[in-house]
Design a protein around this nucleic acid. Structure first.
Length: 780
DNA sequence: CAGTGAGCGAGCTTCCGCTTGACTT
């Protein structure tokens, strides 16, 4: 029996550490937090100094009991949870839940998983820092109070099942306000002048004898631009000045969770949750260090590995070892930056995604320890005596590539690395203009957030943590506040004026604008909830709220403040706000009057109903009932027109007849469909229920029927209720609307009816016992 | 799983942060 029990947070970490310690140490993991506030009620006793009531969640009872047993059998328990606020709380909860004795318990910390770091930690144990634990309790209780008092206000005033919280509500606010800015943005245009010059006299023909230059100013109107081009007709251009400047470019620090999510999104097109899933796989197979971190720090071991590796591949002049420090507010830095475990492995991974993400992590980590790139920038000024404006041509030569050999941050496009060479010119050289163009350019609105750029913004504001970025983004989508959509571009005309061979020609060209790939758009519900919260809970929705309370948590951790007094000071005015909001405001529906029905003259309004945004014709009075229709995807209360609203009432629509029965087209909860007899058939993206033809509808019905026929592997004459079907995960048995797995050793094609019934019975019985066990444990 | 939308009232929903399996069918 091991004399020592070490408890860490992650099982993978436990596995790694096992190799560093002797057999006297048993390493186990708590799988994160083991206790939390009660789920059923508030879980905080407001009357009694905000005393929290903690519970062990059902899915943690097993691990807690196991740890209890091991603790009992050990002489010493080493609590090795992470070195931050949450980690300290986990250790404290372990002491409480496992009933650990003080003289048998030690708290140790390490923020890199290396043998020396761990042995060092064992030699320097300490006690649990109760002040840090209190700071965590304050954080936890505050979040519970805010979330569980605000959400019910939304249920009453707007719609059931909505939610609000310190983090998610601010994330939604960012998206709503960005959309408002975009809606009120007025694009203006100006004319950019681009000239292509050639050297007047060329001693010998070279490939590169053209100079592309931009005028240092833009013109506000077409007339100004045209006037300028006219002046250029007779102008004699020459090189007025040449300026050379050496610059350096430094690599970005190694990845944190947030920067990994951003780069994987931009370079690999991964969603935030996909990045985390694949990173988790790499972590669990020992390929990379921990993927939920806000630290840019690398261990000394990693630095020396990197130094050796860079020298080996590129030579010592490419080595430049750096220690990075974080600039992020509220960073806790309990772990290393994300890096390959073994820096000498350049490529690894079980599938394409793992390989791509690993390569990205490797490059970024290696580049962070490489030399700066050296560039020479050249600015050439081109003038003509008859013109007061200047043209500037820019050139750039890479003198030494340094870290650019392996990694380029995608803010800078690939083109940036390539040399932008200028032809050899000298001051005073005469130039002829091959062509000069005036191009109408429009100002752009701010970009909409992507998942990854939202994470970046949240991190800047100190909202959320590496472990919650991905879940928060999925929460605000699940609540229907925000949608992640790709919207097609629209075309816009712009004016293009050219001056070639002394002739000015004006043409109208078109460009595609507004293509939005995987961007976050607020929904009507998101907009209404946000404006309600901002109006009544301005302080909570303030972008600095988290940063401000973090300061207080820090003071609690330093022992300058008592946690429940701090909470009490916050809670009193906050609770008053909640009561005021409940009393004073009416139910909010975001109602907007669209106009009158041309047929009946009744009012048409759009608003949020129990099931989301709708259009309503007429009012509910006397015997008359209003007519309702749900808004379609992409439509919103703010922008829907009366024509679009009236169109919604054209469904459901009879399309035609098939096999003696009517085909009806409509839009349901899961999108557009046609209905035939009592069966539903989903329409494809290209079909419109408003216009779909009888012929096309029949095609869709037949396609699905054919697919269903293929799905059936076996049916039984004796019992029509049981079938063997082919599904996404292979063959399975369908029986009385429930599905059953077929044991691996059985061939689905040869199963008999009695065998099938036996399988369903066995699985049902197993399930019952599992549920029974679960209930029993819950009662404990 | 696809026709909802008043109002009544039951009972439910909800937070953030720390961790991975369950589980398909």
């Amino acid at each position: 029996m091991a004399k020592n029990l070490v408890i860490v947070e992650s099982p993978t970490k436990a596995k790694t550490i096992k190799g560093f310690l002797s057999k006297d140490f048993l390493i186990k993991s708590s799988f994160g937090h083991i206790r939390d506030l009660s789920k059923k009620n508030l879980g905080v006793d407001i009357e009694n100094n905000f005393t929290p009531s903690y519970e062990i969640p059902a899915d943690k009872t097993k691990i807690v009991n196991e740890l209890k047993k091991f603790a009992k059998e050990s002489d010493m328990v080493w609590l090795a949870s992470d070195e931050d606020r949450e980690g300290e709380a986990i250790s404290w909860h372990l002491v409480e839940a496992l009933k650990l004795k003080e003289n048998k318990t030690k708290r140790i910390v390490f923020h890199e998983i290396t043998k020396t770091a761990i042995l060092d930690a064992i030699n320097n144990p300490r006690k649990i820092d109760k002040k840090l634990v209190d700071a965590q309790q304050a954080r936890r209780v505050l979040d519970r109070l805010v979330g569980f008092e605000l959400s019910p206000v939304l249920w009453k005033k707007i719609k059931p099942s909505l939610s609000a919280g310190r983090v998610q509500s601010v994330a939604v606010r960012l998206i709503v306000e960005r959309e408002k800015e975009i809606n009120s943005f007025k694009s203006t245009s100006s004319y950019k002048i681009i000239a292509i010059f050639k050297k007047d006299s060329l001693p010998k023909q070279t490939n590169n004898n053209e100079i592309k230059a931009e005028l240092s100013q833009r013109f506000k109107t077409k007339d100004h631009a045209t006037d300028f081009l006219k002046k250029c007709i007779s102008a004699n251009f020459f090189i007025k000045n040449i300026e050379k400047k050496s610059t350096k470019k430094s690599p970005a620090p190694p990845f944190t969770t947030s920067t990994l999510q951003q780069e994987a999104s931009r370079k690999l097109g991964f969603s935030v949750s996909k990045t985390m899933l694949i990173a988790q796989q790499l972590y669990e197979s020992g390929k990379i260090t921990y993927m939920r971190t806000d630290s840019v720090n690398l261990s000394n071991l990693a630095l020396s590995m990197a130094k050796k590796e860079i020298s080996n591949i590129y030579g010592t002049k490419y080595v430049n070892i750096r220690k990075y420090s974080t600039k992020i507010k509220g960073a806790q830095e309990a772990h290393e930056a994300i890096r390959p475990t073994y820096i000498n492995i350049h490529n690894t991974g079980k599938d394409d995604n793992q390989k791509k993400l690993y390569a990205l992590i490797w490059k970024r980590a290696i580049a962070s320890q490489m030399s700066e790139a050296l560039l020479e920038k050249t600015n050439v000024t081109i003038e003509a005596n008859s013109i007061k404006e200047k043209f500037i041509a820019k050139g750039e030569i890479l003198k030494f590539d340094g870290f650019l050999k392996v990694y380029m941050e995608s803010d800078n496009t690939e083109n940036d690395i390539q040399n932008k060479m200028l032809p050899p010119v000298a001051i005073g050289d005469k130039l002829i203009s091959k062509e000069i163009n005036a191009i109408e350019k429009f100002t752009q609105h701010q970009p909409r957030y992507t998942e990854a750029s939202l994470v970046k913004k949240m991190e800047e504001l100190g909202i959320g943590r590496p472990s919650t970025y991905a879940p928060t983004i999925s929460t605000i989508q699940k609540r229907g506040y925000v949608v992640n959509e790709t919207r097609e571009s629209i075309t816009r005309n712009y004016i293009y004026i050219t001056l070639i061979n002394d002739k000015i020609k004006e043409e109208i060209k078109t460009e595609n604008i507004g293509y939005e790939k995987s961007k976050l758009f607020p929904t009507d519900i998101g907009i209404v909830v946000n404006s309600f919260l901002v109006e009544h809970f301005k302080n909570i929705l303030d972008y600095n709220f988290t940063a401000n309370v973090e300061k207080e948590f820090d003071e609690i951790a330093q022992g300058k403040k008592i946690w429940n007094k701090t909470i009490s000071k916050f809670y009193k005015p906050f609770h008053k706000q909640v009561e005021d909001a409940l009393e004073t405001t009416e139910r909010i529906s975001g109602e907007r009057l669209l106009g009158k029905d041309p047929e009946t003259g009744e009012k048409i309004i759009t608003r949020i109903g129990r099931f989301g945004p709708l259009v309503q014709i007429g009012e509910n009075k006397d015997d008359k009932k209003p007519k309702f229709a749900s808004l379609r995807k992409g439509q919103s209360i703010e922008t829907i027109t009366i024509e679009e609203a009236l169109n919604l009432f054209k469904l459901p629509r009879t399309v035609g007849k098939y096999e003696e029965n009517e085909i009806i087209a409509a839009i349901g909860r899961f999108g557009p469909y046609v209905k035939h007899k009592s069966d539903f058939y989903s329409l494809t993206k290209n079909d419109d229920p408003m216009t779909i033809s009888e012929q096309r509808a029949i095609e869709i019905i037949e396609e699905k029927k054919e697919k269903n026929r293929k799905k059936i592997i076996k049916e039984f004459e004796e019992n029509k209720n049981i079938k063997i079907l082919n599904g996404k995960y292979g063959a399975y048995i369908s029986f009385e609307k429930k599905n059953y797995k077929i044991p691996k050793d059985k061939d689905p094609k040869t199963l008999t009816l009695s065998e099938c019934l036996k399988i369903t019975k066995e699985i049902s019985n197993n399930k019952k016992t599992v549920q029974h066990n679960f209930k029993k444990k819950k009662n404990n």
